[in-house]
Amino acid sequence: MDPVNLFDLASQQARWLSVRQTTIAGNIANANTPGYRTHDVEPFEKVLDRSRVAMTATQTGHLTGGATEAGYAVKQEEPKHAVLPSQNTVALEDELMKAGEVRRSFELNTAIVKAFHRMIMLSSKA
């Protein structure tokens, strides 16, 4: 599926990844807080679908920002393992794995943006 604009897509993902990083940081910081449930952002595909739908629906009028207003839904996850008596559902290993995913995606994202930026600058040189 052809991207409307690669840079826009990359910026959207970078924003989403930053919000996810903050959520993971919150989970890890509250790993020992009684009653705290693990939070996570909605998947990136859902964010894209929302913005795609919003764009086609308002084509005649003014195009709004859609999902770019940083209004990503952060929800509490269902507990995957047995719940401790303290009602805390944070699993440090899972959170660190998620953080690794965020890092990898972010590195790919910035590398792609850098490469295409370089190519554009190259072709614009006299």
Binding site: L6, L9, M119
Partner: peptide
């Protein structure tokens, strides 16, 4: 390269393929 990069950002392409395509484009 652009198509593969978009797919890579959405998590649907192999990382190495994306890198190879972008390098060939450059």
């Amino acid at each position: 390269a652009e198509q593969l990069s978009a797919a890579g950002i959405q998590g649907q392409a192999n990382t190495r393929e994306v890198v190879d395509a972008v390098m060939s484009a450059e």
